[in-house]
Amino acid sequence: MKILVCISHVPDTTSKINFKENDTKFDANGVQFVINPYDEFSLTRAMWFKEKQGATVTVVNVGNATTEPTLRKALAIGADDAIRVNTEALDGFLVAKQIAEVVKKGDYDLVLAGRESIDYNGGMVPGMLASILDFNFVNGCIGLEIDGDAATASREIDGGNEKISTNLPLIIAGQKGLVEEKDLRIPNMRGIMMARKKPLSVIEPVEVSSQTATTSFEKPAAKGAVKLVDADNVDELINLLHNEAKVI
């Protein structure tokens, strides 16, 4: 089985989010970048397939050279090789189109991505990729087994989960549950050393125009101070929620 894992390069979850150039660009100054947490669940599941069922695992990112340390980290976790499509990730559609080319050229059977990236939260790339390639697609995937060409998956739904049967070729957008938190891997020294020697190929993009453009960013309005209610005066809290906030 040939697996491709899509890796998004995103600010660490603790990052303070700031903008520059009149709020038109994200300010990466002082921000630590990591593998998108949702992609980490997918990458870990891919490693499981590699070790238990025999698969090759390629990781791919669409972005400029600054994303390479994140791809190296994925190699250190155990992916076999990496591809970077050398272009600015302007919108989800452009990224999906670039990855679709990689999938076609590399003949991958299974593409694992994350439910969304925690920077722009678009949640578009996997579904668009599936439609462009006309592959089957499971979003919000919390369990995946592959047997030959057949796949059984579960996905999260409102208030529960749904069991699904489908076939390869397949696109999966994963989240926690695909593997458990405790199964996530931190690269060890040996992995990091080996990652330096693994192939990371940079390929040029195909010509695609984006369909959306972000013109500016805003921060949420500053919040007023909390109203504290005495622990002995729970009636007052009920009163405030009923009469002032009007939510009960």
Partner: peptide
């Protein structure tokens, strides 16, 4: 206007 950065910001996005 859409949510971005996990509710830490919003982005103004043109659909063309």
């Amino acid at each position: 206007k859409r949510k971005a950065f996990s509710n830490k910001a919003f982005s103004n996005t043109i659909i063309s």
